[in-house]
Design a protein around this nucleic acid. Sequence first.
DNA 1: TAGCCGTGGGG
DNA 2: TCCCCAAGGCT
Length: 362
Amino acid sequence: MRQPLFKLKRLLQWYRRHRRDLPWRRTRDPYRIWVSEVMLQQTQAATVIPYYHRFLKCFPAVHALSRARPDRLMKLWEGLGYYARARNLHAAAKQIMTLHGGRIPRRPEVFSTLPGAGPYTTAAVLSIAFGAPMAAVDGNVKRVVARLYDIGRPILPNDKEITGIAQAVLEDGTDRQVTNAGDFNQAMMELGARICTPRRPACPRCPLRSDCRAFRAGTVLERPVSTPRAARPHLRVVAGVVKKNGRVLIGRRPDRGLLGGLWEFPGGKIEAGETPQQALRRELREELCVDTRVSPMAAAVRHAYTHFSVTLSGHLCIIRRGRLHPTVHSRLRWVKPAKLDSVAMPEANRKLLRELRLRNLI
DNA sequence: TAGCCGTGGGG
DNA sequence: TCCCCAAGGCT
C-alpha cells in the first residue's frame, strides 16, 4: 500500500444512506445476483432493470435456465447487446446442473471456470452472495482508486496496483468489522456511478474528498489517464427483404461472432465500385445461392457499433431462380411480417424494420 | 495481448 | 453530430 487507507467508515456510511434501491439488492439468491452481474457487464444499471425482471420471470432458477431454448433466451436478451453473455450464461447453467448438482459454486477457483465468469464477475458474485473477501474491480473502482491515489499512468485491463489497493482496503475493513466484502464492493462501485463520475464528478458531495489526492492536486478530470482510441471506420451495408407468398425471409447468424444467434435480413457489405443493388444481388447469390431481382432503396438507417458504424439500406427482393441454400446462416425461415417481432434481431435490423413499416412496405 | 464484442445515454 | 463511457470476458 503506497498510502494510508482512506476513511472506510465514511464510504460505508455514505453507501448505507444513498444506495439506490436496485432489484438485485433485494435478494440474497446467488443465482439472481449472478444474472444481475452478467447483465451489468459494460451496461448501466437503469438499462438492466427491465431485462432483469423479464429474464427472471422466465428463468427463475438455474435449472430453468439450463433447459432454456436458445431462441427464447436470445429474444429476452435482444437489445441488451454483447450477446455472448447470454450464450455463456446458458452454457454455465448447464455446467452447474451437470457438474455442481445445480448449486452455484462458492469457491472462486470453481466459479471462475464457468463461461463468462472473469475476475470481476467472480469477485462480485461471491462477495455479494457469500461474503467472500474478494475485491471486485470494475471501471468504477479503477476510476475511484486512480483519483484517490492520483495515479498518473494509464490503468491496465488487469491492473495489479488497483486490485492490490482495493483488496488491501477490503481486508482492512473486514478485519476491523467495519464492513463486509459485498457492501464494500458495492459501495466503491456506487460511489463511482453516482459521485466519482467520469465527466462531471460531484466532489463537493464526496465522502472521501479529504483523502483524495487528485482532488487536492486539481487533477480529478485527468484521472484516470486515458489512452487514445482507434477511429471507427464507416461501412455501407445492404439488407434484402425477400418476399414470397406474403412472408419474408430471415436467417439466423452463426452462434460465434458478431450478433451471434440473432435473426436478420440477409445482406452484407457494399464493395468498392458496387451500387447497393449490385452488392445485394451478389450477397444473396453468395449467402443463399439464389438469383434475385432487387428494388431501389426502400429505406435506410444509421447505426453505431463498438468498432465501426454502418449505414444500412434496405431493398425489397424477389427470387428469380434457384433453390435456397444458406452458406453463412445456420438456419433460414420464412415468416409473416407480424412474426418478426417474436424473433431476436439486431437493433440495426429493428430500425430498418420500423422504417419499412412506416412506409407500409412490409 | 490487443482486438473483438452492442447498445443507450450524456456532454 | 460525434465521442466517450458503461457493475468485462474471450481468444
